[in-house]
Nucleic acid binder design. Sequence first.
DNA 1: AACACACGTGAAACAGTTTCATCATACTCG
DNA 2: CGAGTATGATGAAACTGTTTCACGTGTGTT
Lengths: 335, 335
Amino acid sequence: MSSVREIAQQAGVSITTVSRVLNNHPRVSAKAREKVLSAANRARYQPTVGRKSTVNIALLYTGALAVGSAFDAALMEGMTTGMEEFGYDLVVLDGTRARQPDETFSQMFMRKGIRGVILRSSATARGPAQEVADEGFPAVVLGDRFDHPSMTFVGSDSRAASREAVQHLIDLGHKHIGVVTNVEDDCDHIDRIHGYHDAMEAAGLSHASSLVFRTPAHRVGGEAFMNRFASMPNRPTALYFVDPIPGFAAINQAQTLGIRVPEDLSIVGFDDHEWRFMSRPAMTAVCQDAIALGRSAFQALNQLIERPGQTPRVEAKPAWLEVHASTGPLAHVHG
Amino acid sequence: MSSVREIAQQAGVSITTVSRVLNNHPRVSAKAREKVLSAANRARYQPTVGRKSTVNIALLYTGALAVGSAFDAALMEGMTTGMEEFGYDLVVLDGTRARQPDETFSQMFMRKGIRGVILRSSATARGPAQEVADEGFPAVVLGDRFDHPSMTFVGSDSRAASREAVQHLIDLGHKHIGVVTNVEDDCDHIDRIHGYHDAMEAAGLSHASSLVFRTPAHRVGGEAFMNRFASMPNRPTALYFVDPIPGFAAINQAQTLGIRVPEDLSIVGFDDHEWRFMSRPAMTAVCQDAIALGRSAFQALNQLIERPGQTPRVEAKPAWLEVHASTGPLAHVHG
DNA sequence: AACACACGTGAAACAGTTTCATCATACTCG
DNA sequence: CGAGTATGATGAAACTGTTTCACGTGTGTT
């Protein structure tokens, strides 16, 4: 439909200049760049090579997140299952590095032949996601959520399951229950804490901020927290770990420190794989299906690509509670 | 250097036909396809779009393997660290699906603008890797190894570390030692079993094939093996699990069945993350650094791309033994 | 005032892809 | 058996996007 030649005419410049702007060459005046970009946006320009459209989907990491966790691997597996059918390939990008200076995200995506983006963002590093949203490029945010009129979000609804999890602890007789979360928030994490609040409030129990603990979401973080926990006076009898790894690390470290699980301390964790069966005792956990999450993200994105101008939406995949052996009845009264 | 026009002249056809062959259009005769492909190979044809070369690196999965494991995520993280610097992006491909009918791998790679490939193959699904190797496309095989004059391989040298691991068991007084491996072999697995053989043989102990057990490399496989193991007469006093997940599952299941670890059974596992610290007892394991492995694979591939015609090589990253709490001295004499 | 130089720009050349017309061959139906 | 029709292979030309090269133009320097 729209070509560099057409954009050039619209903007009153040569096709050379258009190409330069789109490829972020340095030798182009701010005025020309401005004219070209506005014309390109108005025309909903999408580059084709020869006549063939490029067909890639990007998985864009922003900020502290990086490919490398088992969760991300599962997400990718889910995404790719649907993609082949539509002839897309998955390109993995680092939002902090792949962009050239002064380049907008849309420019970068066009340059790389990318048709749609799945964004992995967190609350502390939302800049890029916000930018992509503002530029109107087809995109889906995965695992985070923020206020934006035209963005589609896919995540898991862990609030309800988190509430159930804490209710399970309450049903076992626990009254003094803490929650352990990452030092960095994203909406999924905040949801889980809300779920904790919901259950505690409904039961008339205290959920003071002193019961919300923070530790980095890795093994050492989980162990360090447990060491700190062991020396706390009047410590909770049950904990809900909102991140997978620290939960597992804590189950171990607790026992190493002589705190029996679940006799002395009940632990509910979070799991997006099968690791809950691997701890000893097996971990009672709020579970989500990472593969399904990835699949949904692609499907939502694909709809956005096929029918642009669609109403954005928020999709919440279910999460669920599985009771295993790391939680048990309150054995003896503290104090 | 070489363009479709040049290839067309060489092959005595039009540029249209060349483009069609390279894009695997159906309407082209076998004879014309043959002529064009041979001319393209002779000229070391590499497509450019406009004038700009495309710059992608593919991670190609073949056969049963799929993106989705934590190991693969770590490999990817390693690969991508080096790639940005050279302006490459990572594209994830499924070798069984991304290819169009009758298309060679080289054709597919050229079509997708891919400059080099990292191959994840296993012994049972080597077809694609072999094919890529035969076509002479820049490629590195990761985690597998086979006989090919022009292929570069990157893997971890787990034979020596495996030998050490079994020697560690022998030093603890164990004489009746088994090894548990996947139902599917790749060279890394075979190496580990060789390491087991090495140690057993050096110590004059039996390593009969009845001591090599096979179970699928997932949790249920590990648990099922342990159930089987529990009912074995005259069972080994120590086991070396050559895959990570079954090892962890076995540590748990053993204890669930009343087999104490390490008092009744010593277990050495395999780990490419930090999970060895997460089991209870913490797992004595042969460890490899998946991120470093991924990084090395890209570096080797990059050299191949920058200086074609280089001598292929076999690169073995170190693996090492870490002794933790799942192994212990032989407590009481069996039999 | 004359010169050098960087910068912005576009014409033209180039790389690849697709459309459309052409020709040959095979197949169908009277 | 022969005329008409479908099908398959092919190339010229049109089209998309990128890069080279040459050309002003303004700015600073001596």
